[in-house]
Structure formats: C-alpha cells, structure tokens
C-alpha cells in the first residue's frame, strides 16, 4: 500500500484537475444566472446563495470535504448527501 506522502503526491494533479472543473462549474452557473438576470449581476454570490438545489447540494458537499477531520469516510457521507430528496 502507498504511504501517506505517496497518496498525497500520486493523486494531487488528478484532484487539482477535478477541483478546477468544479470551480468552472460554479463560474458557469454564476455567468448563466447573471445572463438570465439581464445584466452583470454579482455572479460570485449567486451559487453561494443556493438558489438552485443542485448547486446548493454541491456547496454542502464541498464544505464536508473542506473539514480537516471527518468522523466517517467522506465518500460515504457525500453519497448519502447526494441521495437525499
């Protein structure tokens, strides 16, 4: 099995890539909200307000990931989060 340092290094670029894709998803959503509101709205705030259920769910997931410690495996927690109605 890999050491902790190896795990951190081996998957860094892949996780960086996925985080950038998520950031782009949020930016894309904000830009769409701004377009639909008919002007240059404060797009950065849009996804943060959780006006869309899917985006709010993603923000909730990101908050779980950002926590330093987790009582249980994060993957399991997120799967349950995404299974909610």
């Amino acid at each position: 099995m890999l050491s902790a340092a190896q795990v951190a290094e081996t998957y860094f670029l892949e996780s960086r890539h996925m985080l950038l894709e998520i950031a782009a998803h949020f930016d894309r959503y904000d830009a769409a909200v701004a377009r639909e509101s008919g002007g240059i709205a404060n797009g950065r705030a849009a996804s943060g307000q959780g006006g869309n259920g899917s985006m709010a769910r993603l923000r909730e997931a990101i908050a779980i990931l950002a926590a330093t410690h987790a009582d249980r495996e994060r993957t399991e927690t997120l799967l349950e989060l995404f299974a909610k109605d």
Binding site: L13, E14, R16, H17, L20, E21, A24, D27, R28, A31
Partner: peptide
C-alpha cells in the same frame, strides 16, 4: 490535456467569456 492543462469544458467557458 486530460489533467494538467485546460479542459474542453473550461475552454468553452473561456470562448463564451
């Protein structure tokens, strides 16, 4: 690139911007 540079979706985002 698959991982290290820009992605197809982000490229389209920039084209739209």
């Amino acid at each position: 690139y698959p991982i290290t540079k820009c992605s197809p979706k982000r490229a389209v985002d920039m084209l739209e911007k």
